[in-house]
Design a protein around this nucleic acid. Structure first.
Lengths: 339, 339
DNA sequence: TTGTATGCGTTATCAG
DNA sequence: CTGATAACGCATACAA
């Protein structure tokens, strides 16, 4: 059997409450006593039994994380969350969430109902799910949304700045001399798509470029979406010289389509993505993109959640952090600058 | 406060022990009593408090999963493990493991030492780590290795059949008429690399093809490895007509290099990978590869681990499951069949 | 500044 | 077949 708080108390010649105070950094312990207890702890190699603690406090010290298999960048989110959660001594319980899949819903509901998680983190696009929102508001479980698709409501979130990123990237294309820039807009009900679109338009306006509706394609932010949209915009005579595909996967689809059509990148057409997913560096050519500060986003998100759980914060914060440009081979000077 | 076992006992007019028996499907309860208790459970909506149970039994009902950020296919492993773990009512505690990173080691050690996990699952390449093995043997914690790099020793594992897969894939290239087939062999200390290599050689022998050492490159199973190895084998006059890159990432690097050199795929050179990672379908052209039955592998692995934990198995099983061929655009008939 | 007593909800023991 | 009662290890009112 492992060494318990009683063993420490006996060794230090005090009560278990005093040991508890030392372990939990509570006040009202004389320095002398604290030192004596600490010594006993070290000598005995005492480690508090986390299950007893959880049981006594009726707290799980566990955060649930909703990951959608259809989402992007799951790997990056999860590994950051694991790391930061660990620093706060919280366990992370990931859950693959498929909206409209009864089993996922049941599982989430039971997780919350059985109090197996103290708080919940959503990664995109799980924040959109009605059932999730309903469970959260109904149970009152603290929530923080990471890079939410939907920023409406006053639920807290920490997010990258899609508007600023898209504007910066469009600006980059303009700096290269492009004046005919296509844009692939993701689903219109996603805040993320809309923000990126507005960033694109803002840059155009600042550069006094004409907005051409036929160069803006509604598509999905995935490989097929980029593929199809590319075939659409490259169909006519009046072709763009640059494609801002809205996401890296979409840009990958664009590269595929252009390659299929025998169009050189970036010789004839430049292509840019968004998100800086691992794939962006592994295509030919590499995809110029915007990188969001994932690590930083997660850090602030988990920090906020833990503060709420410890009642140090009301949980109403909404934070937006800027991204940065990642230049790769898929963008280059405009081939025939005539405007 | 939630409804407890006492509430149920009161409602059913029996002792808590009897309720416990019903809940845990223990014998020695009359059918009448069992029905009465079950009715009370349903009516009150009783759910056992998992933390109390864990505490009382001194078991965590949690499986640790080691994921290496440099490993392949983490997403696929994790989501399968989550799903299967759930079916067994086990929580999954993923851990990003970076070998030789002190923090990772400490975390794993404390997880085991504090009995926060009942069993451990390793994904490649974490099974290679000395520290992990040492902790496991020292603590006696049940372990199962999923697709281990190293199959030596009698630690249990469930693995895909790399030999069979590589042989099948090489056979496919030969069926297309290729007689000059390069092979990129991963790190020699990895069982996986060696098995794939032997599969390649076995197919060559069966087809009475000459083994040419200069077409076998030692490389890493990643993008850069495939890139560099491709430049090596395509350097001289005596070029292969097909490249079996050993892994999908490596094949992606090969595609990149060939594209850079202006060599058509599959027109001039066919390329094949291994693993069927998501990227294999998203390159141009798509990568012909071998798919391992991940889901099945994980299912058997977790099943085995849970059996060991419930003392229904000695934990000495070692299972190997076959893979299947996935045909895509990167392989085609040999351009100039002369041998 | 320190200690005592009680509760948290199960499972396990052992007597009926 | 059933039940009373004791762990399990910690946190926390409350008392000193």
């Amino acid at each position: 059997m492992a060494v318990t708080i009683k063993d420490v108390a006996r060794a230090a010649g005090c009560s278990i409450k005093t040991v508890s105070r030392v372990v939990n950094d509570e006040p009202y312990v004389s320095e002398a006593t604290r030192a004596r207890v600490q010594k006993a702890i070290d000598e005995l190699g005492y480690v508090p039994n986390i299950f007893a603690r959880r049981f006594a406090q009726q707290r799980s010290y566990t955060l649930g994380v909703l990951l959608h298999s259809g989402g992007y960048n799951q790997q990056a989110w999860l590994s950051s969350i694991l790391e930061i959660g660990y620093e706060y001594n919280y366990d992370i319980l990931p859950q693959s969430y498929f909206p409209a899949y009864k089993k996922s819903q049941q599982k989430l509901a039971s997780l919350i109902h059985e109090r197996r998680i103290d708080g919940l983190v959503t990664t995109p696009p799980c924040d959109l799910d009605e059932f999730v929102l309903q469970q959260v508001t109904q149970s009152g479980i603290p929530l923080v949304r990471v890079n939410p698709y939907d920023r409406s409501g006053d639920l807290p979130y920490v997010s990258g700045d899609d508007f600023q990123g898209a504007r910066m990237l469009t600006q980059h294309l303009m700096d290269l001399g492009h004046r005919r820039i296509a844009f692939f807009r993701g689903p219109l009900n996603h805040r993320m798509s809309v923000d990126r679109f507005h960033g694109y338009r803002a840059a155009l306006e600042e550069g006094r470029l004409e907005y051409r509706a036929e160069w803006v394609q509604d598509s999905l932010f995935n490989f097929d979406g980029g593929y199809n949209a590319t075939r659409m915009v490259m169909r006519g005579e009046d072709r763009p010289t640059a494609i801002f595909a809205g996401s890296d996967e979409s840009a990958q689809g664009a590269l595929f389509a252009l390659r299929e059509m025998g169009i050189e990148v970036p010789g004839e057409v430049s292509v840019a993505g968004f998100d800086d997913m691992p794939l962006a560096g592994n295509t030919w050519p590499g995809i110029t993109t915007v990188q969001m500060p994932y690590r930083n986003i997660v850090e602030q998100a988990v920090n906020l959640l833990v503060d709420v759980l410890n009642k140090k914060d009301s949980g109403l914060q909404q934070v937006i952090l800027p991204g940065r440009l990642i230049l790769r081979g898929s963008t280059g000077p405009v081939p025939d600058p005539q405007g």
